[in-house]
């Protein structure tokens, strides 16, 4: 325990204790919590949140926020599904461009990165506060989703695409592999590269970072682009899992992502936090969601309880900051 405490910051240690208590409580009060089926079910469910939360962590580490990830997730999922199912028809050239699973997924991810780039460009070039820029993108992306889908789900996407959301590889669900890969890359990116150090430096003190010669705008644009790209990955996973792109997918997912980031110990004022902390936060949110369902708590109360947990996490984080 002492060794564990040494390797974690205080917020992560508290989160780990909270997770342990939560699991223990659920194991004692429900019949199904400690089953393999339920474990993999929780892991599959949190995979999407892990992907978008990792992107959100990068943004929050630069002292920004991205409210558009839920809408970007929906739009990219819908575009991926649309391209896969219907391709692009160019009547004037009598040409049909079809997309393989790889092509449709890449196009969706490219779109997500592009939308994130727009966020980053608005924040850095026009000095729009991140809250406002990404709020605008939230609305636009949701509107584009409705336009693209005409308000209807896009279904029948095929088995090979569905494998990304429902398949298993070496006894582990595909979404867990994918989100695990995302986490691995993000851990290396933030912990072992110059780019990662720039992110922390910008969030810690932007003026000092600028005076040190760090290309603030470039780094921020990359960070928002990555957040968009990871939201798109989440969109692909949701769409593949449901075999359907829903126009209202990803609604309020940004709040779950922010919650995971905060619970994981990342400071909303930037410069402090880790990817693994966020993963821990996402696991807590996932287990909490799962537990509330297993305990048959009303969905209305579930919202209230989740809100209280987030508030509690922020309060504890603030008190940790003071004591540090």
């Amino acid at each position: 325990m002492i060794a564990l405490r040494k390797n974690l910051n205080i917020a992560q240690f508290q989160s780990l204790i909270a997770l342990f208590v939560l699991c223990l409580g659920l194991a004692l009060t429900t019949d199904n919590f400690l089953t393999a089926d339920n474990f993999w079910n929780v892991m599959r469910q949190i995979s999407v949140n892990v992907c978008i939360s990792v992107g959100m962590t990068l943004v929050v580490l630069t002292a920004g926020i991205d409210l558009s990830v839920g809408s970007i997730l929906a739009f990219c999922g819908a575009v991926t599904a649309g391209l896969l199912r219907s391709g692009i028809s160019i009547p004037s050239a009598n040409l049909f461009i079809g997309f393989t699973v790889l092509g449709a997924v890449l196009a969706g991810m490219l779109l997500g990165g592009g939308l994130g780039f727009v966020n980053g460009y608005a924040v850095t070039r026009f000095k729009v506060p991140p809250f406002v820029a990404t709020l605008a993108m939230l609305t636009m992306a949701r509107g584009f989703t409705m336009l693209w889908t005409k308000g209807h789900p896009i279904t029948g996407l095929g088995e090979s695409f569905g494998f990304l959301g429902t398949g298993w590889f070496l006894g582990i669900p595909m979404p867990v592999w994918i989100s695990g890969f995302v986490v691995l890359v993000a851990v290396v990116l933030t912990g072992k590269t110059k780019f990662g150090r720039y992110i922390y430096a910008i969030g810690g003190n932007e003026n000092a970072a600028r005076l040190s010669g760090i290309p603030i705008s470039k780094v921020k644009i990359w960070v928002y682009s990555l957040a968009g790209l990871l939201a798109a990955v989440g969109g692909v996973l949701v769409t593949a899992r449901l075999d359907s792109a829903q126009p209202n997918a990803g609604m309020s997912y940004e709040l779950d992502a922010i919650a995971a980031v905060v619970i994981g110990g990342t400071s909303l004022s930037g410069g402090r936090g880790t990817i693994l902390g966020t993963v821990l936060g996402a696991v807590i949110i996932g287990v909490l969601n799962n537990g509330l369902i297993l305990l048959d708590v009303s969905p209305f109360w579930q919202q209230v309880i989740k809100g209280i947990v987030i508030l509690l996490a922020v309060v504890i984080d603030k008190s940790n900051q003071k004591s540090e």
Partner: peptide, 15 residues
Amino acid sequence: LLGYNSVYFQPLDER
């Protein structure tokens, strides 16, 4: 390589 494995083309009327 990615492009080759990502898209395919077909006359629209055939499709």
